[in-house]
Every structure is written in C-alpha cells, then in structure tokens.
C-alpha cells in the first residue's frame, strides 16, 4: 500500500457549453484525494459538492462500457479505471482534466463521437457469413483459431486511441486505429467471409492504413491493451498476402526495404526514395536532396556501404521471404 493515504491535488477542469459559451474556460479545484480514489470519484465529488452543472459521461464503473474516457494532462484514460495516485506518480499533483477531443465538445467533458462511429461503421465491423437458418450444431471456434484475433475483440470503443492519433487529428479522412483494429478483428475471424472487402477499404490512399505515422500513440492510449498499431501492421501484411496491394508510393516504400537489404544489407536511402516515388515523382525531392548533398548527407551509389557477410543476408532473404509484390 502507498505510504501516503491522501494527497492534495489541484484539478483544472475544461468547461464549455456549445449552446452558450463563445470560448472554453477552466475551473480549478484543490481537493484532498485518497489512494483508493479513481478519477471518476473526483468528477462525482466536484459535481455533487461544488458545481452541479459539470457534465461528463459515466455508466458501468467497471472499465467495460468505454463511455467515461477523457484526458488527464494529455493522456487518454478511463475515468473509472485510473487511480489518482498512479496519475500523480506520472504528472505530479497538478492535473488538467479535458475531454478526449477539445474540438468536438458538446458540453464540458462530453464530446460528439459521430466521427468515431462513422469510421467504425465504414469498415463493416461485423461477421460477414452465409449462415444456415436452422443450424443443427454450434459453429464453434477452436482456441487456436480464437488466438488469431490477438485480443482485438477486447476493444470497448472508448475512443482513447482514436482521439490520441496524430494522423487522424490532421487528416480527417484517415480511418484511425480503433476502426482498423475492428477491421482486423473481423477479418481475422475464421467464420468471416468479408475480409477481402474490408481489406480493400483499409487499402485506400489517404484514409487507409498506409497513412499511419507509426507513432505508437494508439498502443499507449488503449486501456484494454488492444494494441491497435499491431493490428494495423497485420492489415498491411494481409493486404500484401491477398495480393491487392496497389502499385503506389506507399506500397513501394515498404517493398523497397526488401530490395535494398537484398542488395546492400543496409538501406540505400536515396534509392528507396527513387523507387518509392518513381522517376518522375522523385523530382520533387530534388531541392532537399541538393541541400543534403551540399552538407555531406548523401552517399553516392558508388560509395554505398554494405553489410559485412552480405552473402548471409542474401541467403536469408531468399529462404525466409513469405510474400511477393
């Protein structure tokens, strides 16, 4: 048990009512919190003891309905699951409580998750299967096959990853980590027959998996350890395995690594850009290439370094490759 049983914490809480307020503001409360309390307890105490107009969502109080997700000092959490003392360990005793997305606020900590649900619906998040109307036995999934879901079915649609994704914050077309995890969850299900259609959806440029920036924010944000980025990687793999990868800059960027490693062991950075962009597309990189060249940041093809024991690498690439493009 923690040595301290209570601590004084200053909470700054985001307030905004889209019907009456021109700008958001923050209320500050200093409260004594105990080692047993979770964030939801604090929200309740503020609402019940200080300001009844504070609005937030709460329901199951067991970390399973996903409705109470908010952000504390930028970290997405479930209010009902996060102990104050754990947050104090990370951030100290000044905590800022904000909605998951400040640009989608309806009131205070309540946001409109319309974009989240639209993205979710977009990937056909359900089993697609020709079912027998009057089955004579159960359609059982073996434990081995169930493992293929990689716990993607643990998602509670709380939106923590979705509203922590920087790619999505900039490019609103991007489907986002939660919906990608859902796309994986059903496509990896042995009973499902809709995988190919789903893979086509997540294979689109701008909205699909190719625009992931690989920041790992989604893996960090998820309160259920779904690890969406792992599922995004798997969707990439499935797109190549299904042989539906389009020949474009994103796919060539992935494949180019294999080419370069086969040839040099190391990555030929210049050649990767040329191969990915194509001979015409690469032209737009010329200004930066010149700036880099002037500062000794470009290795010419004839000086390209190679890994020692390159023959081993060539042999392994040949024997261990599992896909073709």
């Amino acid at each position: 048990m923690d040595a301290l049983t209570s601590q004084q914490v200053t909470f700054k809480i985001f307030r905004f009512n889209e019907e009456t307020d021109y700008l958001p503001f923050y209320n500050t409360y200093t409260l004594e919190v105990t080692h047993e309390e979770v964030v939801l307890d604090i929200l309740n105490r503020i609402k019940w003891d200080h300001d009844g107009s504070l609005s937030y969502r709460r329901s199951c109080r067991h970390g399973i309905c996903g409705i109470c997700s908010i952000k504390i000092n930028g970290k997405a959490i479930l209010a009902c699951k996060s102990r104050l003392f754990d947050l104090i360990k990370i951030f100290g005793t000044d905590l800022t409580i904000e909605p998951l997305s400040t640009k989608r606020v309806i009131k205070d900590l309540i946001i409109d998750k319309k974009d989240f649900w639209e993205k979710h619906a977009h990937v056909n998040p359900y089993l697609v299967s020709d079912i027998v109307e009057e089955p004579t036995s159960e359609h059982l999934v073996s434990p081995h096959d169930a493992e293929k879901l990689n716990e993607a079915d643990y998602c509670i649609q709380c939106g923590a990853c979705h509203y922590s994704c920087p790619a999505l914050a900039i490019n609103e077309q991007f489907i986002g980590p939660a919906a990608f995890a859902a796309a994986y969850r059903f496509s990896a299900d042995v009973r499902d027959e809709g995988a190919l259609k789903r893979l086509h959806i997540v294979n689109q440029e701008a909205e699909g998996v190719w625009d992931c920036v690989k920041c790992m924010e989604c893996a960090e944000a998820c309160p259920k350890d779904v690890n969406p980025i792992e599922k995004i990687t798997k969707l990439h793999n499935m797109i190549f395995e299904a042989n539906i990868a389009k020949n474009n800059v994103a796919t060539r960027h992935a494949v180019g690594f294999a080419h370069s490693i086969t040839k040099h062991g190391l990555l030929d950075e210049g050649e990767l850009v040329r191969y990915s962009e194509g001979n015409i597309g690469v032209m737009k990189h010329i200004p930066e290439a010149i700036a880099m060249f002037k500062n000794g940041k470009i290795v010419m093809p004839w000086n390209m370094p190679k890994s020692k024991n390159l023959d081993e690498i060539k042999k392994l690439v040949k024997s261990s490759s599992t896909v073709k493009f």
Binding site: K214, T233, A254, F257, S260, G265, L267, L316
Partner: peptide
C-alpha cells in the same frame, strides 16, 4: 556491428513480418 543489416524501419515489417 559491421555485419548488421537494416532493421526494416517498421516498413519491411508491413511487407514481410517474418523476414
């Protein structure tokens, strides 16, 4: 480690995870 190859930079992983 002069023998080492490229790590794949998480892009080779998208293409061929096992490799």
């Amino acid at each position: 480690l002069d023998e080492a190859s490229c790590c794949g930079a998480s892009h080779l992983q998208d293409y061929d995870d096992f490799l």
